[in-house]
Nucleic acid binder design. Structure first.
Length: 496
RNA sequence: GCCCCCAUCGUCUAGCGGCCCAGGACGUGGCCCUCUCAAGGCCAAAACAGGGAUUCGAAUUCCCUUGGGGGCACCA
């Protein structure tokens, strides 16, 4: 609640098990905004206690994703900080120590049940239509006996001794108090038989040690919130402010994104993965703006925000607890807005890699001239290649059937091209204004419509039916090349 | 099956008892502008899941139903 005044310490704690997606991006963003707003610290902590699920390169992708978005962290694995290390795999010993402390104080116990036995217990419970849970077999083994068995090398885990009676009430900032009956909770494992701590223990220990004041995470954690609260209580540690964000649903709003749907999305030029979004031509500014509004709002009409606007305006009180369907057409909209918010120089710089990726050599000067006429007609950066590739090609190859549009005969199209060639040849200063003026006069006298004349010219000069404004384009291409291309098109018609 | 959460236009949302026969945005449709495509401008259709209760008064509070989501691992 002490938002806006006291500096917070918040952490984004992903596990390096796959690609960074929109949900992570939003959580990290809110963390960052809250930290910046309060003059606090934003920490990146890698939750890699599960060796089996580790994915090579995932941590790097996470860091790159955050940097790309502009969501910079103050402490983290690659930059260090006063509460490191920031990779849980490097903190193994710490967790074990705290787990044993819990055993000592009677809040946890050693359990010697084999995975086989547990599976059997669960199967039986399912058969009886009971909720699967640990049956408490080792709950009351005396600590001395347990120590002896461990000494003899018996495999064991450490379990939390969840109270069997009563209720646990925890407060979530968005939902208020949540109360559960303790008997519906399980004796969760804190430390595995290989000595690695599980999330429930590791995260609580780290949050405490790293002096985390607000835990912002996805609502999939809500069911284990009582456990986490109980663990904190067992240690006698103060609890952070708990903030559970709503989940993202698939665009239809029915259920969450499945593997198959992710593939389908990519076919439409969309993705929930941050690295894909970058390659698809989305601006980090737009992704930030868009994602910030899924579960948060400022007022009833303001929607365009830069990162610094968001730092200024963000507040936990305006978070919305209900699930949100991902709306990609709105991302396109925001991308357009942010593209138009870029300076010409900046836009030129951002679209250049997309040309390079398609094997098109660009030049910076020309690109700067193209940027302004491209700006309001692209929704994503990669569209600029399709729209403006012709500026950098030595040759364009207009299709004859496009050169001769419906309603015109080849002879008429030829006439337009020839007349235009004569008129444009006579233009001294080849600016779009000076070229357009005599061409307009020609349209008037020719009996053709502006659409017909300029349409033929567009195809002849750009090789495309859709392009940036004709005369601005011609100015950038230059008189010489324009005339060459007109001649080429006349030849093309003649050859038919 | 059990536990928890959520519920306003197709979608994201504003609304925190009277300002609401519900506002904005995306998308959709129409018109204007126009050399194509856009951008931009204007207009339109489009929602308080249902039922009780509280109250002079409910989208806003409470209960139930329904629907949706999440969770029930030696994963996070």
């Amino acid at each position: 609640m002490e938002n806006g005044i006291t500096p917070v310490r918040v952490r984004f704690a992903p596990s390096p098990t796959g690609h960074m997606h929109l949900g992570s991006a939003r959580t990290a963003l809110y963390d960052y905004l809250l930290a910046k707003k309060t003059g606090g610290k934003f920490i990146l902590r890698i939750e890699d206690t599960d060796q089996k699920r580790y994915v090579e390169g995932a941590e790097q992708e996470l860091i790159e994703g955050l940097r790309w978005l502009g969501v910079d962290f103050d402490e983290g694995p690659d930059i260090g900080g006063p509460f490191g290390p920031y990779r849980q795999s490097e903190r193994k010993g710490i967790y074990l120590k705290y787990a044993e402390q819990l055993v000592e104080s009677g809040h946890a116990y050693y359990c010697f049940c084999t995975p086989e036995r547990l599976t059997k217990v669960r199967e039986e419970q399912q058969r009886r239509k009971e909720a699967p849970h640990y049956d408490g077999n080792c709950r009351n083994i005396r600590i001395e006996e347990a120590r002896q068995r461990i000494e003899k090398g018996e495999k064991h885990v450490i379990r939390f001794k969840t109270p069997k009676e009563g209720t646990t009430t925890v407060k979530d900032l968005l939902r208020g108090e949540i109360t559960v009956e303790n008997r519906t909770l399980d004796d969760y494992i804190l430390v595995k038989s290989d000595g690695w701590a599980l999330y429930h223990l590791a995260a609580m220990v780290d949050d405490h040690l790293m002096k985390i004041t607000h835990v912002i995470r996805g609502s999939e954690w809500l069911p284990s919130l009582p456990l986490h609260s109980l663990i904190m209580q067992a240690f006698n540690w103060p609890e952070p402010v708990w903030v559970h964000l709503s989940v993202f649903l698939k665009p239809s709003g029915k259920g969450k994104m499945s593997k198959r749907e992710k593939d389908e999305l990519l076919k439409d030029g969309y993705s929930i993965f941050i690295k894909d979004l970058k390659d698809l031509g989305y601006l980090p500014e737009a992704v930030v703006n868009w994602v910030s509004l899924m579960g948060w709002s400022f007022d009833d009409h303001t929607e365009f925000f830069t990162l610094s606007d968001l730092i200024d305006k963000f507040s936990l009180e305006q978070l919305n607890p209900s699930p949100a369907a991902i709306n990609f057409s709105k991302l396109d909209h925001f991308n357009g807005l942010h593209i138009r918010n870029l300076t010409d120089e900046e836009l030129a710089r951002r679209i250049t890699p997309f040309f390079t990726a398609k094997g098109i050599k660009t030049d910076a000067e020309k690109m700067k001239k193209i940027a302004p006429i491209l700006k309001e007609r692209i929704a994503t950066l990669d569209e600029s290649v399709e729209m403006a590739g012709f500026f950098f090609k030595d040759k364009v190859l207009p299709a004859v059937e496009e050169l001769v549009p419906k309603g015109l005969t080849p002879a008429q199209a030829r006439e337009i091209l020839l007349e235009s060639h004569i008129i444009l040849s006579a233009v001294g200063n080849f600016s779009h204004k000076e070229a357009e003026e005599p061409m307009r006069a020609y349209v008037e006298s020719s009996g053709f419509s502006a659409g017909q004349v300029f349409g033929v010219l567009r195809v002849a000069i750009t090789g495309q039916k859709v392009s940036p404004p004709l005369f601005e384009s011609m100015e950038i291409i230059g008189k010489e090349v324009v005339l060459q291309r007109l001649q080429q098109s006349i030849r093309l018609i003649d050859q038919e």
